[in-house]
Amino acid sequence: MTIKEKLKKIIVEALNLDDITPEEIKDDEPLFGKKLGLDSIDAVEIVFQVEQHFGIGIKNMKEGRPALQSINTLAAFIEARL
């Protein structure tokens, strides 16, 4: 499973998005846009999940915000630190 696939699976499962499948999340679509409807708790939950699954910490939202734009940006953030 690629990092992107893994991220999509984590997001759907950890955020309990049972009305959408991992495959339906597009790599470049905004995570916090209308379609997914995520909010600030989801953002910090994704940070927690990234820390648990990849061992990569995000210290604060200043660092987190650019990474949490889309699956693409998040995957790039993780790859750069693996």
Binding site: A14, I41, E45, F48
Partner: peptide
Amino acid sequence: PFCSPTQFS
């Protein structure tokens, strides 16, 4: 030192 923020809230 980590806990799920969703679970915490």
